[in-house]
Amino acid sequence: MENFLTFLNSDKYITYVCSSYLICFFGLLILKISSHIKEKKVIKEYTDIKRKYES
């Protein structure tokens, strides 16, 4: 806790540290979400095409 408080009071470095963490997790989140969106789309396409050709 003490470490965190001194970190909050370091006005010089806090913007650098926070912006790097934010950019990092934002990038990972975008990759994760876009992978899931693509998966959903492909699953739908797959079930559609299977139904179409099997009937």
Partner: peptide, 13 residues
Amino acid sequence: FFKSPPDYLQGES
């Protein structure tokens, strides 16, 4: 953020 100290030279960065 809570359990690690700042560096002797680089500080919080």
